[in-house]
C-alpha cells in the first residue's frame, strides 16, 4: 500500500490554515509537496511523506539526493541556512510547523535531533544532558534534574559507563559514547520525534550495533526518522523506508517490501548496489 496514493498532493490545504487534517490514525508527521531551494538551486522537488508514530522511518538514497535536507525541514534546522527556502506543508500532529502557532524553538523541543558527527557541548556529561531541561524549565529542583539526567542516560544505555564521572567533560568520551550522549541529550527534553542524521557514520561497527539496539528500544516511546547510507542498517532498524533520488521521493513502503520487492527500478538499482 503506497502512502502517496492515499494522500494525493492536490488536497494540500492553503498555507494560512495552520490546522491541517491529521494524516490518519497513528501518523505523527505529514509532509505534503515539500520543495526546498538553496538560492536558485532546487534541492527537494515536492516530497509527500507520512511518518508514523512509534515507528522508525529510514530515509535512504545516494549522496546529494536531499534526504538530509528533508530531515532538517522536519524541525526547521534549515532556518539557520542562508538562502534556504522551504515550500509546501509539514505538519506535526496536524499543525503546520512553518505556521504561526508553532515557534521554531518550541518545535525543536518537540522534534529532537541527533547529528552525523557526535557534537557534545564541551561541558560536563551532566551539563550536556541538563542543558535542554534547564532552558525549557522542565526541572525546578536539583533532585528532579538529577533524575532526568539519570533516566536519559539510562535510556541511551550510557548510565553504567559514566555514572561515576558525570562531572567530566563529555568531549572526553569515545566516539560511540559521545553519540549516545547526544541521544541522551536529545531525549532529556522529552521530544515526541527524534531525527537522526546518519548517526553511525562516524562510528566503528561495535558502537554502531550499540546505537542500533538503542534505536530499536527508543521506538517504544518516540517516533524516529533516521537518515542512513548503510542499507543493512536501514533494514535492521526501520519499519518504514523511503528511497530518495535527485530530490524526489521515489518510493516509500514497509522496509521489508522495499528491500525484497522494490517497485521502482531506481530503488532496485540502488539497493542492489548498481549506483549510490
Amino acid at each position: 500500500m503506497s502512502v502517496q496514493t492515499q494522500y494525493p498532493t492536490a488536497s494540500v490545504p492553503p498555507r494560512a490554515e495552520t490546522q491541517v487534517r491529521a494524516g490518519g490514525p497513528g501518523v505523527k508527521m505529514v509532509a505534503r509537496d515539500v520543495k526546498v531551494y538553496y538560492g536558485a538551486k532546487q534541492a527537494l522537488k515536492g516530497i509527500d511523506l507520512d511518518i508514523q508514530e512509534n515507528r522508525v522511518m529510514a530515509l535512504i538514497g545516494p549522496s546529494g539526493c536531499g534526504k538530509s535536507t528533508f530531515l532538517r525541514c522536519l524541525n526547521r534546522m534549515n532556518d539557520t541556512i542562508e538562502n534556504c527556502r522551504v515550500e509546501g506543508l509539514i505538519a506535526l500532529d496536524g499543525e503546520d510547523v512553518y505556521g504561526r502557532t508553532i515557534d521554531a524553538v518550541q518545535l525543536r523541543a518537540r522534534v529532537g535531533m541527533v547529528f552525523q558527527k557526535p557534537n557534545p557541548f564541551p561541558k560536563s556529561i551532566y551539563d550536556n544532558i541538563a542543558y535542554g531541561p534547564r532552558i525549557h524549565g522542565i526541572a525546578t529542583h536539583r533532585d528532579e534534574m538529577d533524575e532526568i539526567v539519570q533516566t536519559s542516560l539510562e535510556r541511551a544505555g550510557l548510565w553504567n559507563e559514566v555514572k561515576d564521572r558525570l562531572r567530566e567533560p563529555g568531549t572526553g568520551l569515545s566516539g560511540g559514547q559521545q553519540q549516545r550522549l547526544c541521544i541522551a541529550r536529545a531525549i532529556a527534553v522529552s521530544p515526541e520525534v527524534i531525527l537522526m542524521d546518519e548517526p553511525c557514520s562516524a562510528l566503528d561497527p561495535i558502537a554502531t550495533a550499540h546505537i542500533e539496539e538503542l534505536i530499536d528500544e527508543l521506538r517504544e516511546n518516540y517516533t524516529i526518522v533516521i537518515v542512513t547510507h548503510n542499507m543493512q542498517q536501514a533494514a535492521r532498524v526501520s519499519q518504514k523506508t523511503a528511497f530518495f533520488h535527485l530530490g524526489e521521493m521515489v518510493e516509500c513502503d514497509d522496509t521489508e517490501e522495499i528491500f525484497t520487492n522494490p517497485r521502482d527500478e531506481r530503488t532496485q538499482g540502488y539497493i542492489t548496489g548498481r549506483y549510490g
Partner: peptide, 10 residues
C-alpha cells in the same frame, strides 16, 4: 555546537 544547541530547542 550551534546545531547541537538549536537541536535541543535553544
Amino acid at each position: 555546537i550551534r546545531e547541537a544547541a538549536l537541536g535541543v530547542g535553544a
